[in-house]
Design a protein around this nucleic acid. Structure first.
Lengths: 124, 124
DNA sequence: TATCCACTTGCGAACCGTTCGCATTTGTGT
DNA sequence: ACACAAATGCGAACGGTTCGCAAGTGGATA
């Protein structure tokens, strides 16, 4: 998380309460959450700021985004990983990432995002 | 595309004009499009039906979904492939899929979806 | 081919996650 | 401590998507 703060500050962004609160939320035991979740949890912060913060973090690749239903679910991009999600109950497991999709002749600055969906044993 | 029709019929779904039109749109030279694109192109069909059709196709894994901005982009899942997308201009290239993410101990019926984003040479 | 009926569609309004505009506040360099 | 650009709070608006229900239709049956 300190790394992420430094990245923010280094890029010229202010370390505001909203941003720190979102970082803290995502690095705590709440590994992942939607904008709504985060806003519910951080009461002193307006929802528009939450959204602006999350969009910024996404641009800077500080967070990874998963789309579940119609909500975006955010988690810190501290170490490369993906998620496998049960499409019935939303149960989610983290998976370490060993992929390298860096080499494409027509593209630069390539990032990848892998979504795995299935049905967990409980729901099956 | 015939395969997809058979899949639909085999699962007990009717081959209605809307569904066939959407299939045709996606298998034509329009390889991919949003619900809005499709609706614009298929005038005789209501937007709610387009959405219902696309949701059905997504459930049945007849189409793959890419999220660009806040829109969903659909393409036929006729053969396994992914896309790499320029985050500045939306330019998109298809990439053959050679991955197998089938084996997870806690999940069944696993599907995967890989999104690659970057900046294309023109925009760089 | 005529009939039937569950499945689909069309229509319009509603939904809801997200974004916008602008006045106010705040972090940070000087 | 000061100044100023950057960020926030507030409320309303936006836009993609979905809902409810009456009317229409594909496909099985005889």
């Amino acid at each position: 998380m300190e790394k992420l703060k430094q990245k923010l500050a280094g890029d010229g962004y202010k370390l505001t309460k909203s941003r720190l609160a979102v970082l803290e939320y995502l690095s705590g035991h709440h590994a992942a959450g939607s904008a709504r979740d985060i806003h519910k949890h951080i009461k002193h912060c307006d929802q528009a700021s939450i959204y602006r913060t999350l969009n910024l973090f996404e641009e800077l690749h500080l967070v990874n985004v998963e789309i579940i239903g119609k909500e975006k679910i955010y988690c810190l991009a501290d170490e490369p990983h993906h998620h496998i999600i049960c499409k019935k109950c939303g149960y989610m497991e983290a998976i370490k990432c060993h992929h390298d999709f860096g080499r494409f002749k027509n593209f630069k600055d390539v990032f990848h995002h892998l979504t795995l969906t299935g049905v967990c044993n409980k729901c099956a």
